[in-house]
Amino acid sequence: MQDSELNDIMKGYNQKLDEARLLNLQSWVLNLQHYTYQQKQKANAKLGKLTLQKKVLVFLGIIYGFALLFLAANTITWQKIFFCICTAAIGIITLYAVVVYIKQLYWIQQFNSADSIVEAQEKLVMLKDSTLSVTRILFLQTPFYCLFFVSPAMIVDSPAPFILVTLPITLLFTFVTIWLYRNIDIKNAHKKWFRILFGTSEWTQLVQSKQLLDDIEEFKKEIVMK
């Protein structure tokens, strides 16, 4: 097939589309305000709940994070060294997650559907990906919950329970946590363990986003290679 033939078919395709009509356009636009009101009502109903949820989470996160740091700062003694380190670590991780969360809210507000296609779609995928960031950050707290009750005296006086129970459990959780931190990524969204961890609905959305991310990357790569 020649270029000219393809161009002719393309012209014909355009003509055919021009023959298609938009019916009721005028009456629809006249009802636009009503539709806008309806859409706003729907969005407010959804966003109202979400925003309140987010505000509560951010508020509680800040209170919890600073309370833990305050507690840690006021219990610095050798006997409570594990408690102090673990509490401080959990507090710092919580506050870091809150910062990431606030950053996400800012990105949502900044989204503009009049951005170029690649830019806008990348931003949408980035938003989905950032919801995962908070989860993987919060997972980092897990090993500290296994150690906060330990004291140096406990290890010296009765080392067996510490060596046989606490230490292996902490090491196991540390390993799992590090593995999750490295692997909770949108690029792994298609994997089975991901689906089990995040549930079907979230998983489906993330797989779709991953697919779009792949498409965007491939779209750019293909061009660069030429």
Binding site: I9, G12, L17, E19, R21, L22, L23, N24, L25, W28
Partner: peptide
């Protein structure tokens, strides 16, 4: 008040098939 997009007339020429 939905917009209705009508399909164009159907013809079965080579051009239409393409």
């Amino acid at each position: 008040w939905h917009i209705e997009i009508e399909d164009g007339p159907e013809e079965h020429t080579d051009k239409e098939n393409n």
